[in-house]
C-alpha cells in the first residue's frame, strides 16, 4: 500500500532540511577557503563550491518544499544558466591571474600554459618588429 501522506511529508521535509544545511555549509567552506588558501588559483577552487553544488542543493530544497511541479523547470533554468556562466568568469579570472603572475609557481604540480604564453608573446613581439620595419622603410 501507499505510505501515509504525513510520513511522505516528513521525509521530504527532512531531505530538504539536510539539503539546506549542506548548501549553507558549502558557502561557509568557500569562505574558509578564501581566507586560508595561499594564492588566487587555489582560492578559485574553493569559490566554485557554493556557486554550483551549493546552488543546486538549495534550489532542490526550494522545489521540495513547495511541492508543485511547475517550479522545477524554472529552478532548472536558474541552475543551467549558473553552469553556463560560472566557467566563463572563472576562465577570465584565471587567465588574468596567470598573466599578471598572481600565483605561486612552486605550488603548481604542472604548468601547461607557460609554453603557449611564451610562444604567443614571442609571435606578438615579432609581428610588432615587422610592423616597425615596414613603417621605417616607408
Amino acid at each position: 500500500m501507499n505510505p501515509e501522506p504525513n510520513t511522505v511529508d516528513a521525509v521530504i521535509d527532512a531531505v530538504s532540511a539536510v539539503f539546506m544545511v549542506v548548501g549553507a555549509l558549502m558557502s561557509l567552506a568557500a569562505a574558509i577557503g578564501l581566507l586560508r588558501f595561499p594564492d588566487l588559483m587555489s582560492r578559485m577552487h574553493a569559490a566554485t563550491k557554493p556557486q554550483v553544488l551549493g546552488l543546486f542543493l538549495l534550489l532542490a530544497s526550494v522545489g521540495l518544499q513547495l511541492r508543485t511541479w511547475w517550479v522545477w523547470p524554472v529552478l532548472l533554468v536558474a541552475w543551467i544558466f549558473q553552469l553556463l556562466t560560472v566557467p566563463v568568469s572563472a576562465h577570465m579570472v584565471g587567465r588574468a591571474g596567470y598573466r599578471t603572475k598572481h600565483l605561486h609557481k612552486e605550488l603548481l604540480s604542472k604548468d601547461e600554459l607557460e609554453a603557449v604564453v611564451q610562444k604567443a608573446a614571442k609571435a606578438a613581439r615579432e609581428s610588432e618588429a615587422d610592423d616597425g620595419g615596414n613603417r621605417t622603410a616607408r
Binding site: G23, S27, L34, A47, G54, L58, G97
Partner: peptide, 18 residues
Amino acid sequence: SLLDRVLAADVLLAILGA
C-alpha cells in the same frame, strides 16, 4: 590583488543567492 577581491565578491553574490 584586485582579482582576489573580484573572486570574493563573486562568492558574496553566491552567498546572497543561497
